[in-house]
Structures are given as structure tokens and as C-alpha cells.
Amino acid sequence: MKYSMFKSTYVERLYNGIIRENPIFVLTLGICPTLAVTSSATNGFGMGLTTTFVLTFSNFLIAALRKVIPDRVRVPSFIVIVATLVTAAQFLLQAYVPSLYESLGIYIPLIVVNCIILGRAESYASKNPALASLFDGLGMGLGFTLALTILGGLRELIGAGTLFNYPLLPSFYQPVTIAILAPGAFLVLACMIATQNYLRKKSGKPKKNCSCGVEGCGLCQGELPTRKDEKGEKA
């Protein structure tokens, strides 16, 4: 009985991260790497997996240490843990997947400031048991990977006519290079979010409010933290 209940929490966490609260499409968290590295499906997928690695372990470690870390130095401690994991991921990629390391470049260390990671640490891992947090991180990471791969795939298909480097479109297709350039990143993601808004409206589901976990993400419909919130944060 207890086992099945536990198991369902984990499955629920995975579903939540991949579909219900997909970090990109639903929460619009972590936009910077999303747009920057998705010039091809391979890059998007690689970035997604690297982030998943960091997110899963950071959630696990933070949840495991949540009773040891004093509240006041919570955020700096989280940042140190995340930065350590990111640097570790960087070494491993450099040693074993150098081609990916080359193409992701500076965006690997920037995973540290990806809003998703600190957001999950604040809103989930710092309040829940280690194993559930691990699955939460895994779910969110996989949701992120899915979104990045789709975005990268679309951009690559439109902009180069290939998918994961395999030519997919017939040779008379003239690639629309702008899709893999900077403006294309904005355009394609805008259309994807709009499509999702449309589908959601059609199915009658209300538009989700941004449940941004960490202050500083700044995406919560342009709301700034009020003075009061800020004091609460420091207290």
C-alpha cells in the first residue's frame, strides 16, 4: 500500500515535469539556453541531457541537505552546489563527448544561472524528501530536453533541411537559413508557444499562471518583487 503510494508520487513527478508543468512551454523558464543552443536537434538534445544531469543531482543533494543548510545562506549554498555539478558536467563532457562540448561552448557553465535549476531548488527540493526531489528534477529535466529537442529539430528542419544531421527534406527544398539564426530562434519559439496557447484555449483549459519558483526569474508576467516580498526573502 505504502509502496504503491510512493511509486505513484514518483511517476506523478515525472509526468508533471514532462507534460503538465513543462518548463519551457508552460512555465517559460530558462529561456536563454533554450534559444541559444537550439540551432540543431543534436545540440538541443545534448543541452537538455546536460541540464537534466545537473537538475536531477542538484535537486537530490539539496533535498538531502535541506535540514543542514540554514535558511539565511540557503541561496548561496544552492548556487555552490549547482555550480559544482555544472563544472563536473563540463569536465565529463570535455573528456568523453568533446564534440558536444565544442558546440555548446559557453552555454554549459551558464547552466548555473538557468532559472529552472534554482527555481526547482527553491520551490520543490528545499521542502521535499530527497528521492521525490530526484524524480522531480528528472521529470523537469526530461521536459526541458523534450522542448529543446523539438525546438532544435524544427529550426534545423526549416533552416537546413536536416534532422539530427540526416537530410530529411527533398533536395529541391531551399533551406530558410533565418530559422537557425538568432531571429529564427525567437520566431519559432513564439509560434510554438502561440500554438500551445491556441490548443489550450480550444480545449477550454484556463491559461496557467507562471509559477516561477525563484525571484529573479522575472518572467512572472512582468511583476517585480515588492518590497515586502524582498524582506521576507531575507528574513
Binding site: V113, E215, G216, L224, E230
Partner: peptide, 21 residues
């Protein structure tokens, strides 16, 4: 009000890293 928002602004870390690169 804007200062606390800046720690997680990836432009700040990004510039420091790019300078090194």
C-alpha cells in the same frame, strides 16, 4: 528592487566567462 533579480541574470555570468574565453 532590481538588484536581487540580477544574480540569476545569465548576462552577468556570461560576460565574465566570455572575457576569459
Amino acid at each position: 528592487v532590481y538588484l536581487p533579480l540580477i544574480t540569476t541574470n545569465c548576462a552577468v555570468l556570461g560576460v565574465s566567462l566570455l572575457n576569459v574565453q
